[in-house]
Design a protein around this nucleic acid. Structure first.
Lengths: 216, 216, 216, 216
DNA sequence: TATGAATGAGCTTTCATTCAT
DNA sequence: AATGAATGAAAGCTCATTCAT
């Protein structure tokens, strides 16, 4: 039992280091040497705990899913008393917070989805990665959870929209994810026309998302 | 003069090939050898026309901006008679079409923006790339163009929203871009909950975007 | 005493496993991990019982010598009544059987002799291997035994050849060993010219070998 | 044309170097770094001329076949006037010379045959090696050539043996190959019993081989 | 005794880039 | 203008061996 704990601690240390190394420059540009340095182990040790570089990346992606799912569950837990509408709004806020505070996890999620789309999982021989399998087990949870909450809101009457719950969620997700990706532009733009009050924009995004729940 | 034309033709050939090579697997995974093969030149020749691999990528990104801007201009041209609202709606449609038909350009645009955000331009010594400079000259145009049209719509009374035009555009862009990125999920999902009618979703996205113009 | 027995049992288990792992692909391609797996021990344990990978190989080579010598002794024992000629013939048969049934031991013997030739024993720091020393003690026995039998045959008149006994043995050994190595060709060849009846060939080999004993 | 010549020269240089590096310690122990050093090129250049380490080895093996075949052809050419028996005897001598003077080629031939036997060609992804394909084209030639000469000898009456020609050749080959492998023992043995006059032994080997042609 | 963990030192191979012609 | 050839500098991964417990 102790062994297992120790091992998990080490794996965590590696993943923590890997995140630091992988995210600034992207997966491809990161080097295993750097990961090893970053966690004070030898490169060979990395391979004792993980099968390959890609395996580490899959483990991080798994974390990304876990973190998002945890956030969702927590929000639901903490708003047990509220109605569905309130909970779903909080969830939207939660996603925005997640993608701002854990921008790299957000990226990892999208990177993973792109891999799914392109069929790269098999190209890269990832079918056997334990972490890929773990991800498969939970990759639909974020959607499932929120859709269930939207449904609950419809049931308790707080959400009046007639749109399919899945459609509501995905549209909101798209909007918020797009916002996160683009928000860089509000800050980067230097010409007057580009100037945008980020806070104001964000508020607008959320208003629009909330509106979806009310079928306006 | 002839020389220049010839050179441009070669450059075009290289970029056409590079697009085919770069996009399926991403910039990092693409190899100059493949680009050379794809355009029937020697690797060394590539370096006669472009300074580096990244330079080629910048040239492609420049193309991406050009293509989008062209689409916008064309739409405006072809709808000179309509009012601002109609033109802006067409522009939204145009962006969706662009990102579906030229998915790789869409990606290139976002890749470029990510580089801006992370300050990687300098990290990778791209400040001197001619194409980077060219991009700088037009990178704000897409926004400028659309914002101008929204303003026109407000002027001619067809757009009633009180929101800042930039905000309207960016929010719509975010939504549509997010949709494009996520639409994979509608197709990938196999469980019943994940099943989503893509056309329906898209319609919903556009309705929401259009609504932004009317301040509902 | 018990300890020693236990230890010997473990060593045997390791060597059994090592043989299975070493031979299909050769010594260099075999991995200690595989040996460990094959005998259900940890890699580290291997190093408790043997000094190194090469040491294990030396131990196997020692086994190879032992097995061959045992076969010789047994044949002699079982043919105590026969004359020298008969015993030597049986020994030749025995060698063929040995090299067919224990092909890997046969290979090990030759691998060892190649190492002797190239002076690799010292190159690889094997002088101190206990098993190398053990081998040194018996490496000449196979020759000695058979030469003695040939001499006996000459003495009892059953072997009429005037050739030196050592020469007779080595020539026969060469022939049979060469046959074993080449017999693959009889089977591999697909063109009609390559077709060879292996049994017929083997018989011819033995006839030739037997003839050596009769000085034809 | 000049280009091709130059390239062939370089390839030759690499193979010459590789032989020096590969043979003393064996293929597995050799390092590409050493090969590069030995021919004064960069390691990367090696990969410009050859696809992989194994490819180089296949090229060397191809050489081995070529050298042996050349020797056979030369002997036949130079003994056009003699009868079949004489030519075949000379060929036997030729093989012995080949395997003594080019011991490493001799080894390469056997290494290759072992690979065929074990089906390692496919295991190691060698099916696509150009040199593997080249080898396939000539691997049966040595046998074919000699068998044809034995047949010729039977025709002209100089070879009286009734044995199948293939069998005669393979038996002789086995004997001589075995001799080459074992001859180390004549030199290595230190005890009196091991002392063997190599020349005498060799003579005996050849006498035996020659006898095969006369069906004694 | 036994082993999970750790690692130094390599390994083959890759690739963007440059050079010589 | 074009390219075959060359290469420096990695990169990911491996493995026999050792250490700590």
């Amino acid at each position: 039992m102790k062994q297992t704990v120790k091992r998990q601690l080490k794996e965590k240390a590696i993943l923590d280091a890997a995140e630091k190394v992988f995210f600034p420059g992207g997966y491809e540009r990161a080097k295993m040497d750097e990961v090893a340095d970053a966690c004070g182990m030898s490169k060979a040790s990395l391979y004792f705990y993980f099968k390959s570089k890609e395996d580490i990346y899959m483990a991080i992606t798994y974390r990304a899913f876990q973190v998002l799912i945890d956030i969702y569950y927590q929000i639901i837990e903490q708003n047990r008393e509220s109605n569905g509408l309130e909970r779903v709004k909080k969830i939207f806020d939660g996603y925005a917070t997640f993608s701002e505070e854990h921008y790299h996890y957000h990226e990892a999620l999208f990177y993973y989805m792109a891999m799914l789309r392109n069929g790269e999982i098999e190209d890269r021989g990832l079918q056997n990665s334990i972490y890929y399998k773990k991800i498969q087990g939970i990759q639909n949870l974020p959607i499932k959870i929120v859709v269930a909450e939207i449904d609950a809101g419809k049931e308790d009457g707080s959400i009046t929209s007639k749109k399919p719950s899945l459609l509501i969620y995905l549209t909101s997700w798209a909007m918020i994810a797009g916002f996160v990706k683009l928000s860089v532009f509000g800050g980067v733009g230097k010409s007057s026309i580009n100037y945008l009050n980020l806070a104001e924009w964000k508020e607008s995004i959320f208003t629009t998302a909330y509106n979806l729940l009310e079928d306006k």
